[in-house]
Design a binder for these strands. Structure first.
Length: 489
RNA sequence: GGCGGGGUAGCCAAGUGGUAAGGCAGGGGACUGCAAAUCCCUUAUACGCGGGUUCGAUUCCCGCCCCCGCCUCCA
């Protein structure tokens, strides 16, 4: 089944054909490390994490690169405010980033390059642009001549004429043309600086990604990704520089994820309407945010709210319960007269899932396929419980269905990993809203045994007392035909 | 203003030229000592407005209204 991807460059959904058969090179713009990450960053990370996982599932050898912008104006400003070297700021937020990524199970990229460790590559890149006549130096600054690149605007669908109106020259800039952008900035006193052919300075934005892509992936890559807000000017500028230099297509497919909004407004630092990933992590399992992100198509806007997190949590429980209830079905007596099984439903769910994912990563539809299977599983389970038994074949099919959802969820969507102890909660500065619980599982099991003895002897007051006391500790118990389950609320 | 993306039941959200997935909420039921939790069933004359093409449009075309994003840094 062929994969289709929407390409910003062409504005169309296209069949995905990698440049080199069997191999996919992806680059996404990572974060600028000047502050903590919010849900907007999280969405982008999750989206490309899932895209990467799916490509890998399709059998491609995926090489994935995601950078850190670890020197830029914002970092420098923050460093000034805190009277610290900019490297301390950058290191601090790179650490934060890795913590968030780990918490939300974003797989590390194959290469996670930093700008400051690629200065020679960037200088070399700029030098070549100057040699080719696409860039020029003025008093220690180097600018890119936008007008010399005839395809400028092809990614973001803008014409140079339109851009002139909005173009502006910042005080201190020495551009020959307002459209031009800085490749290298002469450093002011006290700012980070590296030696270059044009004197002491630092890289401008845009160039770093090109230099790092050329170095780690080559002059043409398969997929270049990032948030929709990076399309212009960042990606447009990247494309211009790269293609000016190489005379080759820079990226075959440009993939942009939609933005996260709050009450319809873009989540951003400047509006102050952002929710950090730490806050989410303090209140919810990471799976809930992942599922929320996946329940909307990646190109659509996603309006964040806590209500939606609650709804998503319930939907998530539905998936999880279906998997876990295998333990109940398994305990039922065997009944060879039991009719029916799930193999048809499994085949259908699987087929629908992959068809959806192959259609521009339609995760909402893919999830619908899983929920469809969950319903079939529940119907089978209910019937088996009522009939007091299940056939070997039906039981095996339930197990297969549970495994399918579990494995797809885990491998493709990064869900259901909670079997592993969940991360270093103590590193989180945010107050946990949940009570810090140290669950003594054995004690709970014992209490439940006592309660069930009480129930058998119709000593319901004792039974209910135990239930209430556990409830106070956020332990919810559930009496099933094959015993009592419990879980933390 | 230019460019891009949207307006689908109470809410969220897929999708299709032949009357529309899934989730949440609502209603009914099963289960239970009672609950809780869970599950099943189910409701709703849902496709922004007005034209056009068509045997037939929510799906294509045109116009309009409204929302969001980008056009400065931004995932």
């Amino acid at each position: 089944m062929s994969l289709k991807i929407y390409n910003t460059l062409t504005g169309k959904k296209e069949e995905f054909v990698p440049i080199k058969p069997g191999e996919v090179k992806i680059y996404t713009c990572g974060v600028t490390v000047y502050d903590v990450n919010h849900v907007g960053h999280g969405r982008s990370l999750i989206v490309f994490d899932v895209i990467r996982r799916y490509l890998r599932y399709l059998g491609y050898n995926v090489k994935f690169v995601r950078n850190f912008t670890d020197v830029d104006d914002k970092i420098i400003n923050r460093a000034k405010n805190e009277c610290l070297p900019f490297t301390v700021i950058a290191d601090r937020y790179i650490k934060e980033y890795f913590q968030d990524a780990e918490n939300f199970r974003i797989e590390p990229a194959d290469v996670e390059p930093r700008v400051t460790t690629h200065i020679p590559d960037i200088i070399d890149f700029i030098q070549k642009l100057i040699e080719k006549g696409y860039a020029y130096e003025v008093e220690g600054d180097v600018y890119f001549s936008v007008r010399k690149f005839k395809d400028y605007g092809k990614l973001s669908k803008r014409s140079i004429d339109e851009l002139i109106a909005g173009a502006r020259v910042e005080p201190g800039e020495k551009k020959k043309d307002p459209l031009d952008f800085a490749l290298w900035k002469a450093s002011k006193a006290g700012e980070p600086a590296w030696d270059s052919p044009w004197g002491k300075g630092r890289p401008g934005w845009h160039t770093e990604c090109c230099a790092m892509i050329f170095k780690h992936l080559g002059e043409t890559i398969d997929i270049h990704g990032g948030g929709l807000d990076l399309t212009f000017p960042h990606h447009e500028n990247e494309l211009a520089q790269a293609e000016a230099l190489s005379d080759k297509p820079f990226a075959k497919y440009w993939v942009h994820n939609g933005l996260v909004t709050v009450n319809g407004q873009k989540m951003s630092k400047s509006l102050g309407n952002y929710i950090t990933l730490k806050e989410i992590y303090a209140k919810y399992e990471p799976d809930i945010l992942r599922l929320l992100v996946l329940s909307v198509h990646y190109r659509s806007p996603l309006d964040f709210s806590w209500e939606k997190m609650e709804e998503t949590k319930k939907a998530y429980e539905r998936l999880k319960t279906a998997i876990e209830d295998y333990k109940i079905v398994e305990k039922l007596p065997e009944n060879s007269d039991f009719e029916g099984h799930l193999y048809d439903a499994i085949a259908k769910a699987e087929q629908n899932f992959y068809a959806a994912m192959s259609d521009d990563f339609n995760t909402p539809e893919a999830l619908a396929a899983l929920f469809g299977l969950v319903r079939e599983m529940n119907i089978l389970k209910d019937r088996a419980v009522k009939e007091g038994g299940i056939s070997k074949k039906a039981l095996a099919s339930y197990k297969e269905a549970a495994n399918l959802i579990h494995n797809i969820g885990k491998d493709m969507f990064g869900l259901f990993d909670s079997l592993q102890p969940c991360i270093k909660v103590e590193d989180i500065k945010v107050e946990k809203e949940k009570k810090e619980e140290k669950i003594d599982e054995e004690l709970i099991e014992t209490l439940l045994e006592v309660r069930n003895i009480a129930r058998k002897q119709k000593m319901f007051e004792i039974a209910d007392l135990i239930r209430d006391k556990l409830a106070q500790q956020d332990i919810v118990i559930e009496d099933t035909p094959v015993g009592t389950k419990w879980k933390k609320k």
